[in-house]
Design a protein around this nucleic acid. Structure first.
Lengths: 238, 238
DNA sequence: TTATTATTGTCTCAAAATACGACAATAATA
DNA sequence: TATTATTGTCGTATTTTGAGACAATAATAA
């Protein structure tokens, strides 16, 4: 069998979170002529670190670099080996040549989640897919293989890390109000939070810098904008 | 190149924690005639789930089944690709035939940690190693490749999960006193805990069942023994 | 100009969780 | 029978958290 430029048996999948319209969303790809939906993923080059491969794929799909990215689990069940699905995808793309046969072999998948600013992204399909779009977490299509399980575990891990590392601001633009940040937390945790308590907790961390006020044009007091200093976050994460 | 029975490029390593003499310890292997120390690890068979492969290896090394086991990270840097080290090990074992050449290729490693009852184990070396022994966490030998990093991350993850899932009892025999359990927590967290607070917290979880008293022969009040019901733990973990 | 509306920043008080020490109980020994 | 060491448990002080209250204020309506 011909050797490909990629390491065999190893794939990665990424759950790319965004926030828009008060809702948590993720990027989902749809493959050509198959009706199959999947997480954005890819493979490692032989001379490339795993994390670099994932960042490379993330850049291709979103155009973004320097993204908040976290590995959370590696899926390796035999049950996820379904060569007929990949065969369907290849056939639909008329990529049935020998040089793609390695894709039909068994893979384990290292799963990552990313937090990005929704407004920064123009999702880009890859060669095999005809769309890469945002879907609300509660309106996901049926995902192929074990990708629904991967999404569930991503959300679970994000929730745990949210209280531990307080990373919600990575889903927002550089300047945001505390109410916006609270909406992010509520969307992730799927519960209402108390305003006073939330603000005390977040500001108590000393990670946010108060900036000028934000005048929305609405008939009420203008909130302050805040920015988030990455270098403090990196200190805090340790 | 000949195909082996194992998936190429994929390995696993396990950080097997035990508790003895008030100290947290892990199992380390020493390879024949090389002075190289490493974590116990192995490879996946082509028709085997990742978790099953790790449990298989764990059984071979410790004789134990039904172990508390948790995957915590997958290491995939290019920097960990050092074929000359594996070459050294193979040469020292006179295993230089072609059927071992696949071991010289690049690997990513899925890392797990396990919590076991020290007294239940008779550590078993594998074919390439002449010992598999307990080492205190603060007296580890120099480990090959990135295994020191793997151990560090295992301990970090264990500490985080300790407060979240309270799994310390997996390091003890079926019957134990609260003071013994407290020593386990102190060894893992590397800090003293307050006795009253610790007991209130642990017992408040309702996971432990009080059993008969334990008469040590010492000149003081006899403590109660406790047992830990696995099925409650599984409920609690969710 | 002035009142109204909606939302914000901040504070206070209550409730819950946690930290810390105290004290009686008790198993073995002197 | 007193002593020693450790245990089970409790009470109080401290800290953290939850929930509401209130004045401040930007735009709008009167």
């Amino acid at each position: 069998m011909k050797e490909s430029a990629f390491l065999r048996h190893i794939a990665y999948d990424s759950v790319i979170f965004g926030f828009s319209g008060e809702r948590l969303k993720i990027l989902i790809m749809k493959y050509h002529n198959t009706g199959l939906f999947a997480l954005p993923g890819g493979f490692m080059q032989r001379d490339e670190s795993l994390n670099d491969a994932v960042r490379r794929g993330l850049k291709e799909r979103t155009g973004l670099e320097n993204i908040y990215l976290e590995q959370f689990y590696t899926f390796g069940d035999v049950a996820r080996y379904k060569p007929e699905i990949m065969q369907t995808i290849l056939e639909a793309n008329e990529h049935n040549s020998e040089s793609y046969q390695w894709l039909l072999d068994r893979f384990i998948s290292v799963a990552y989640y990313a937090l990005i600013n929704y407004n920064d992204v123009v999702p880009m399909p890859d060669a095999l897919s005809d769309s890469c779009d945002w879907y609300s977490m509660d309106e996901l299509p049926n995902l192929m293989l074990d990708h629904a399980e991967i999404v569930a575990k991503a959300l679970q891990t994000l929730r745990e890390n949210l209280e531990k590392k307080l990373v919600g601001m990575n889903l927002l633009p550089p300047l945001f109000t505390l109410t916006e940040l609270q909406r992010v937390y509520e969307a992730i945790l799927d519960e209402k939070l108390h305003r006073g308590t939330f603000q005390r907790k977040i500001l108590g961390l000393g990670l946010l810098q108060r900036q000028e006020k934000y005048f929305s044009g609405k008939a009420h007091k203008a909130p302050y904008l805040y920015s988030f200093e990455d270098y403090k976050m990196s200190l805090w994460q340790c």
